[in-house]
Design a protein around this nucleic acid. Structure first.
Lengths: 130, 130
DNA sequence: TTTTGCGCTTACATTTTTGTGTGCTCCGCA
DNA sequence: TGCGGAGCACACAAAAATGTAAGCGCAAAA
């Protein structure tokens, strides 16, 4: 979002890991507050900025802009400006992003299941304590 | 890592999203600099702290400890302390984490493929410019 | 008998990066 | 004159990653 300091250990580690591991690279691309949701909302359809915004709970214009830009740079989202007045800008998923869809669905499944497991474990330990 | 300020918009958004979306929850758990690598290295085997450390490029003790603690809290990694001297501490994947393995492998595949796509796109645009 | 070392963790201080808030722009139309 | 769509610029707060140093329990070395 802001610029990175290219000499920081943080940046160096990040690059090293991205470099030798596809999944770190993947999560690096997907890991912003709104990215996954944006992709999810764009699945199977084209939306314009304002429509996308309505569908995301509590995003500010700024955040949406920023994350869309990054997704565009990462090649997941394609931005089309229609030269009308007022300008109309539409977003849709790239081929690559479409291929990612099954993966994030599994991630979703796993997430729900894991949350369940964790909640039960939580209840259990509460029960033991009492 | 540090504590979160519970009233910040950041925290509130995070919780909202985690709450209504399994994959955001999943990525929230998996999204630290070293988490995926740790899981990956622990796949199919048990390792102790120092062994793990050797296998990760350039991690500090501190980072490793922190991330392991979070993974433990998230229920992905199980920590076993052997009461010897000097203490021996071993880590292995939880059942939940094991179920995640196929997903992260796909993510890995996708990551590699996508990186390829992006690199080609990059070359192409360079070629066009020249 | 003091000193050293191992394997792992914690406390405290800092630096980087990420996420937000606010205000401003540009362009025609009503 | 004001509105709506789609942002951008600048300033700041919060969270994540890192660095440094110290601690602990006890055996083996000096």
């Amino acid at each position: 979002m802001g610029k990175r300091k290219p000499t920081s250990t943080n940046t160096i580690n990040r690059e090293t890991l991205i470099d030798f591991c596809g999944m770190v690279y993947a999560v690096d691309i997907l890991g912003g507050r709104w990215k996954l949701l944006i992709l999810y909302k764009l699945e199977g359809r084209t939306l314009r900025f304002s429509e996308l915004k309505k569908r995301l709970p509590n995003v500010s214009d700024r955040m949406l802009t920023l994350h869309l830009q990054e997704l565009e740079k990462s090649g997941l989202v394609i931005r089309t400006v229609h030269a009308e007045v007022p300008a109309r800008v539409e977003y849709h998923l790239s081929e690559s992003a479409r291929q990612l869809a099954p993966v994030w669905k599994q991630l979703e499944q796993w997430g729900l299941a894991h949350r369940d497991v964790m909640e039960k474990a939580g209840e259990l330990s509460v029960a033991i304590q009492s």
